[in-house]
Nucleic acid binder design. Structure first.
Lengths: 340, 340
DNA sequence: ATGTTAAATGCAAGCGCTTACATAGGCACT
DNA sequence: AGTGCCTATGTAAGCGCTTGCATTTAACAT
């Protein structure tokens, strides 16, 4: 028990147990390959020395890290939290570890993070949405790192996806808004460049308008980043136009909450004076008052299925199948028939 | 340009540039050690081949990973989000990468994560609060991995901390509550076992009671995990006692929001019928209605200072100095004078 | 020219692990 | 007892990088 001893290695364990390093390694990774008696001896030595395998060495030798990387656009709000949580729980069950990083909605940052994660030996990657440069997919292919897209569904894409039809989901909501008599619609969207979810949601609204004899180009669109304050600001801009919209469909719940607060600040009652809807159905949607009418996204299911599919791709080198999930309209208090 | 070539290595770059691997390595890590002309040649080869260094190999050889690990009790709510964001931004500026994992408030999980992070070669660790088994600190010491505690401040502890005085902060709030005439106090706290922040906050309230001639033992305490629903449930329990508390001091904003919603559900007006306070001053505190009177914690400052201090410990092998930050009372709408 | 010195580069030894292959017992048969 | 085969274990070759030390090269003074 010398004081200055530093971290024990496989070798130390082997010596202590009187076996070769190979046997120790097998004990730890494929216990069934080593006979009971030896295994006991090794395991004893392991915790007597307080041995923890060196991860870098293991990755290097095995060329497997049992680590999966996920790059999400933001950690600042809870949009991705629940889905990612489910993703990681499922990974954990299967013996994988999740490494998360956030790109802050910046494509270059995302590319850098992808490279970083690959360099760190990630066995697979979870990406959000399909929109990114081809070269990134080439790179991933060359490095032989399987990738899976979530929060979006597009089976024709070269990368498989586990997600939902953003266009369709928003379309259904917009149909309902229009059915309630709203004729002047507006949307507060995320930045659509590089964000297929945002873009498709806008398209969903325009389609609904066209399908109901409204001119799609009349849709007021404000794009901004997903923060409550920005939702508020965008709402203020929107209401300065004439005729003011009677319904504001927000790209997500966070923006919607900002819009609601701003409306209240401006002395407008929601939904009496103006209807506001969200998207995602995160916790916030129920907490805010009035509670948000929104589109429920099965985040947990998506996270879990994505984990399963990605692991499958990794372990069988299969190319991956896309899976589509369905969303659901949640009617709460923030949407009401147009009064005009 | 063979199709089946896999990831290029240092060696490939060296060959392509007609130098040794040592030179390539130096180009990448200590550019000033290599003459301009050579450097150009090497850098060209690097991006011609699309080379990305293998992280595991680098860690192994250099025994440095420029990676810092943080284990937080939860990612589910935003309590740690802002501080961690600032922590990571500062790390990034200094060339470090952050790896985050969540222990779900389970000590064994935390220990496992600490080992995992160390095995992955983390150069340093950020931990939340001081409460954990001695053996963990021993382990860290043996592995020579510096650790820093945040969200708590206790300069006498063996591990340095960057945080605030939880007891004092809550004490100040409780003093004000009492000064407003409240005599029947209750608190909805996080689970205090293994959570010094929660415990100290309770102590802060009791001290304030004692200092004002109230019996500390009269404080109703309900402990629960930090989720909105649990805050709601706890509030219901609390109000079933007689005499019902006129002020409920919550261990954090999340619990307070749950309490407020439950109060509203029970037909109680906040703060007219019952005052409710939070702690942390996260975004939620301003969004909920009535807006929360709470204790503002300088999360960003804490994250940033922690990063600086931890890097300092890593790079100089210094033992680290604790730094204390101050909190501030934020008076919003949820606390009001007792009406009895 | 030659020696002296410093700067640039190369050489090669690991870092701690996994795993293909080699080896050695053990057992069941003949 | 000998043969074959199966299983448990050992041997050693890397995995891709960094870095101390040795060597070469360049630069300058004499």
């Amino acid at each position: 028990m010398s004081k200055h001893r530093s971290a024990p290695t496989l070798d130390d364990v082997a010596k202590a147990a009187g076996v070769s390093t190979a046997t120790v390694s097998r004990c730890l990774n494929n216990p069934q390959q080593v006979v009971e008696a030896t295994r006991q001896r090794v395991l004893c030595a392991v915790d007597e020395l307080g041995y923890t395998p060196n991860f870098a060495a293991r990755v290097m030798a095995a060329k497997r890290s049992f680590t999966i990387g996920a790059i999400i656009p933001t950690m600042e709000n809870a949009i991705f939290a629940r889905g990612l949580q489910a993703f990681q729980e499922e990974l954990h069950k299967r013996g994988y570890t999740l490494l998360v990083s956030s790109s802050a909605y910046r494509p270059e940052a995302e590319e850098e993070q992808i490279r970083t994660l690959v360099a760190r030996g990630a066995d697979g990657l979870l990406l959000i949405g399909h929109d990114r440069e081809e070269q990134i997919y080439d790179y991933l292919e060359r490095q032989k790192v399987p990738a899976l897209v979530a929060w979006s569904f597009n089976p024709t894409n070269r990368t498989p996806s586990v997600g939902f039809d953003n266009r369709q989901a928003m379309n259904t909501l917009a149909q309902q808004v229009i059915a309630l008599g709203h004729r002047h619609l507006a949307t507060i969207s995320g930045i659509s460049k590089g964000n297929d979810r945002a873009r498709l949601r806008i398209t969903g609204i325009k389609d609904a308008m066209a399908e109901n004899g409204l001119a799609p180009d009349d849709l007021f669109v404000v794009e901004t980043t997903y923060e409550i304050e920005n939702g508020a600001e965008a709402f203020r801009d929107l209401m300065s136009y004439a005729p003011a919209p009677t319904a504001v469909l927000c790209g997500n719940d966070v923006l919607a909450v900002g819009a609601i607060r701003q409306a209240q600040e401006m002395g407008l009652r929601v939904p009496d004076d103006v209807s506001i809807t969200g998207f995602d159905d995160i916790e916030l949607a129920r907490i805010v008052s009035p509670a948000l009418t929104t589109v429920h996204v099965p985040h947990r299911e998506m996270g879990q299925k994505a984990a399963l599919e990605l692991i499958h791709m990794i372990e069988t080198s299969a190319s991956g199948r896309s899976v589509e999930l369905s969303t659901r309209l949640i009617n709460r208090e923030s949407l009401q028939a147009a009064t005009v």
